[in-house]
């Protein structure tokens, strides 16, 4: 499903997204947001809590249409679900009633791949994410990190051209998280999938991405985009100590801090 590399993989073209709320006033999550995702890049989106980062991803996936503006995939306007994407959710979205093998094979089976063939490629992906021997386990029998691996294999088995990740590792402990980040980078290199990674953790964003996009406090729009010129391959745990990393961190944090403060002041007003 690869296509023209020169055009951006995904474009958000002056996109606004409003949600109806119970008090009648629509809530504006995104306002006039413009963003291009280059083919093959790793783009991280950071922003304060509740700034519409996840909404940006649901628009890119076509799970929700924008209220105003347009989402374009390979320069074509997107209608309905985006067929090129894989999506990793913030919370567990693996099916609790399916064991690991059935979970990973779910995608191909939905798309009518014969059962034998689906199981063969599922076993291959289970091995790639390091879960050999756990094929027959149900999600509740696995640790949080292992469930993330199941979700990763479930998403990557389609070899999606565009990979959308919504704070996928935020629920993990620090060690497991660093491990998963390194593995994600290794897989990203071999798959060469365009990746959009949403996180509230600026360190994670810089360590992983080619570019970091900072969103403003809601309604979100793009505050700034930074090229991350750290050499690859990167080792997530070590790259944080490089002088260039620290420099980039300071530069972007100046931008981000301002937005975080705005969002913090608002929540304080809400609670008092």
């Amino acid at each position: 499903m690869k296509s023209n590399h020169s055009s951006p993989a995904l474009e958000l073209y002056s996109v606004t997204k409003r949600f109806p709320t119970s008090n009648g006033q629509p809530y504006t999550a995104l306002h006039d947001l413009n963003l291009n995702v280059r083919t093959g890049e790793f783009l991280a989106i950071v922003g304060p809590t509740g700034s519409g980062k996840s909404t940006t991803l649901t628009l890119m996936a076509g799970l929700e249409p924008p209220s105003v503006g347009e989402v374009r995939v390979h320069s074509e306007p997107l209608r309905g679900l985006n067929p090129y994407v894989g999506y990793m959710f913030q919370n567990d979205a693996v099916f609790p009633w399916k064991n690991v093998l059935e979970n990973v094979a779910a995608g191909p089976l939905f798309r009518h791949v014969p059962r034998d063939q689906a199981h063969v490629s599922a076993r291959d992906w289970i091995q790639r994410v390091g879960l050999e021997g756990f094929e027959g386990y149900y999600p509740h029998q696995l640790s949080g990190g292992m469930r993330k691996r199941v979700a990763l294999a479930q998403t990557l088995i389609h070899q999606p051209e565009i990979l959308l990740m919504d704070e996928p590792f935020s629920a993990l402990d620090v060690q497991t998280r660093a491990l998963m980040e390194d593995e994600l980078l290794a897989m990203w290199t071999t798959l060469s999938a365009t990746t959009v990674f949403v996180t509230h953790d600026l360190e994670e964003a810089i360590a992983l991405a080619d570019r970091v996009c900072v969103l403003t406090a809601g309604p979100a729009t793009v505050k700034g985009i930074y090229e991350i010129d750290l050499p690859r391959p990167r080792h997530v745990a070590e790259v944080r100590f490089e002088p260039r990393f620290v420099e980039l961190y300071h530069e972007i944090w100046e931008d981000l801090r301002h937005e975080v403060m705005i969002s913090y002041e608002r929540t304080k007003q809400h609670t008092t």
Partner: peptide, 17 residues
């Protein structure tokens, strides 16, 4: 869970599935 439905849709499930 809305997440499960969204996940299944992205993975290619038809409305019947």
């Amino acid at each position: 869970d809305r997440n499960l439905i969204a996940n299944a849709r992205i993975l290619g499930a038809s409305p019947r599935q």
